[in-house]
Amino acid sequence: MSAITVSTTVNGDAVDFICQPDESLLDALRGRLGLTGAKEGCGTGDCGACSVTVNGRLVCSCLMLAAEAEGAEIGTVEGIAKGNALHPLQQSFLDHAGLQCGVCTPGILVAAKALLDRNPDPTDEEVRYWLAGNLCRCTGYDKIIRAVQSAAAQMRSA
């Protein structure tokens, strides 16, 4: 197996990395670029902990080859805050205890942001279905939904 060079953009910054042909984007983000915010909970697209955006589209980075990222724009949890200024979703998760252990939180924040970028005023049911691919075992989802809705309301009034 010979390595592949990939040129891409991560959180707005141009990045080059090398990877193996069978390496997932998740492994490249974590292992090559040190961006360990995205987590591997299953490696099979069933838990959503590795959620990132690719060209604006929400995906599981475990289900994409790193080589496929050539020329793409990748967004990860590390890019959500602007410096020390938290995104309203991040602040809302803190304010509403939308996390306990926090390991699903990066994926949920990336996914929730992708939702609110498309639909600024979702119903609870829309939030629940959009986030159905993001497993959380700690919270029972209740406070997550509240946190997303509170952030959505705040973003609408901003």
């Binding site: 961006l35 360990t36 987590k39 959500i80 805050a81 991040q90 996390l99 939180t105 990066p106």
Partner: peptide, 16 residues
């Protein structure tokens, strides 16, 4: 929570 910001920004370090 004191670990909150690290956990919403992806900075918190878990086992892996």
């Amino acid at each position: 929570r004191p670990d909150g910001i690290d956990k919403v920004t992806g900075r918190a370090l878990y086992g892996a």
